[in-house]
Write a protein that binds this DNA or RNA. Structure first.
Lengths: 338, 338
DNA sequence: CTGAAAGCGCTTACAG
DNA sequence: CTGAAAGCGCTTACAG
């Protein structure tokens, strides 16, 4: 490995001066700087990141730790997140590192261990639960981090969307179209976003003076098979819904599959709306008929999320900085008046 | 952060001795060791990985660098690889780090930069091309690495399957069943594995004294949409194939979709065999009728691959250690005599 | 069984 | 504008 000492020896200057020349410090002679830089490239010098980190106490590495999952579709979703996030973080000149734990591993401990072993400047957390132990742990350690989504029980930096509005907007649209028997395939209500969406749906119902049937709201993991089987079950009920709201496009895909297998027409026989995160593998344009619903591309979340985290690490931003992103609504062709 | 110095001060011993006690060295007094260990846990001491790496020249980190891809299905596949690999590497007490470059980034340069910046003990490479520049680069740097698959043009450590046999076995089975018009949806023949498979198919044809129609072998990215559209095209030809060999289960899924949309029955109207990597998202059991073909679970590849790489890094194994894994064949119910 | 010392490669006050 | 020195936290010969 080529070190500063090697360059120092070659050009006959002190290591100190070589370091400063390469670091672009102002108080270095023009000629000296040039000579040093030429030699550095000639020898193929790369600063040793380990040594630099030890000295500066900063590694430039942002980590995300996830537990392995047995659900391939959840993994596919996760990977889209990783790709998007990673691209943004690289663009800021930082390194993004994904740590996949064993399936079902205790990632709280992993976060703590990794942080206390040095070498990680900060973390990105996704899918927070209420009273999320990872958040509590990182707060206790004083580690810089930012959450996609939020845990209302703790104060921390986050980037999120208005999930109350997600539920309210879609329910409101369907109620306006005259639907009353509206099923809601919600995400797991162990997570805050799903609770908010349920509250939003309830608010829309209340505004229209309608009492929702609690049996029509389902709290389930948001995958295609879950969308399919639960829709089939709903359609088999004594009083099947005339419209379905799906928590994401994977669930919606399952809903479409169910209607198709029953020979039903969307939207004539069943109206469908879904929230769209902009996942490529389940793009709303790939639905026939085009899927309507609320839209908030995850891609935009990563941009602000990484920029905010960088600021927090540098100590130039409130460690509890919060941000709620915009939401849009597309009608699509998947919902019609009853 | 808690350091050795803190413990040293608390217990009134030198940093040297504290380090040795914690390191589990033999020549430390029982009582001393106990006292030090108790204090370490009391203070919540974690050895600083950065400092340790700088000293030992080893980080315990294995990296895989991939370019971002625009193809969500390719990403889903990749992520299954990452999950499996990561689990194995963690199990060996090493850290696995995934580095996702920008879409289309020059990962050769990324490999070199990351290695020369220190902090990476070795690399895992997947999807080698002939004369793969990443391999050439890592060989030049003397970096430990292992490849899943192989580049016959360079000597390096790898774990691979016998792709000649993959092609030969499936073609042979179909030829035995009496098929002559056999289409082959092969992977991109810019990669060695696909060339080998083509050679294997050709060998089976030769053995049966049959001359294959070159127009029936397609070199395409192995995704579901590609499987579907290319099958439709083949079925529309003047002389449609009676059997199709697919390079993986994603392609096979597309083939099934195409037959279904044409109202054809598998295997009565079209026999299908595919190579199965054991991907969860496209499991062969989830096919109806059950898909037949060669099988080699990627999972087993990761076990030996990580163990081999660990050995190579430790200098206890030939850096050019190669290994060819077993292949099995399942008949399934997707192919029948013509 | 224990400790003082050197050193991994870097950066950064400090003194000139 | 330049260099000697200290130090980030650790490990490991070396001497006792």
């Amino acid at each position: 490995m080529v070190t500063l000492k090697d360059i120092s020896r070659e050009v006959g200057l002190s290591v100190t001066q070589v370091s400063r020349a390469l670091g672009g410090h102002a108080d270095v002679n023009r000629d000296t700087r040039d000579k040093v830089q030429r030699m550095a490239t000639r020898l193929g010098y790369r600063p040793n990141a380990i040594a630099r980190s030890l000295k500066t106490g900063r590694s430039g590495i942002i980590a995300m730790i996830v537990a392995g999952s047995r659900d391939p579709q959840a993994n596919a979703h996760l990977f889209e997140i990783v790709m998007g996030l990673s691209a943004e973080i690289s663009a800021l000149g930082l390194q993004f590192v994904l740590h996949v734990g064993q399936t079902g591993a205790d990632t709280t401990q992993l976060h703590a261990d990794l942080y206390r072993s040095g070498g990680i400047d900060g973390f990105v957390l996704i899918g927070p639960a209420p009273d999320d132990p990872r958040i509590a742990c990182l707060l206790r350690l004083g580690a810089p981090f930012i959450v996609h989504g939020r845990d209302p029980a703790q104060s921390h930096a986050f980037v999120d969307i208005d999930n109350f509005a997600v539920g309210e907007t879609m329910a409101d649209h369907l109620l306006h179209l005259g639907h009353r028997d509206i099923a809601f395939l919600n995400g797991p209500e162990s997570e805050f976003f799903a609770l908010e969406r349920r509250r939003g749906v309830a608010a829309a119902f209340a505004k229209h003076g309608v009492t929702p049937d609690p049996a029509l709201t389902l709290s389930i993991p948001m995958t295609e098979p879950n969308g399919r089987t639960n829709t089939l079950r709903l359609l088999d009920a004594a009083r099947p819904p005339t419209a379905i709201i799906a928590g994401n496009t994977m669930l919606a895909r399952g809903v479409y599959q169910a209607t198709e297998s029953r020979g039903l027409n969307v939207p004539r026989d069943l109206s469908i709306l879904a929230h769209d995160d902009g996942l490529e593998l389940f793009a709303s344009e790939s639905f026939d008929p085009p899927l309507g619903g609320t839209v908030a591309h995850l891609t935009t979340a990563w941009v602000t999320l990484s920029a905010d985290l960088k600021q927090i690490i540098a100590g130039q931003d409130d460690p509890f900085h919060t941000r709620v992103l915009d939401l849009t609504f597309t009608k699509g062709l998947s919902a019609c008046a009853i």
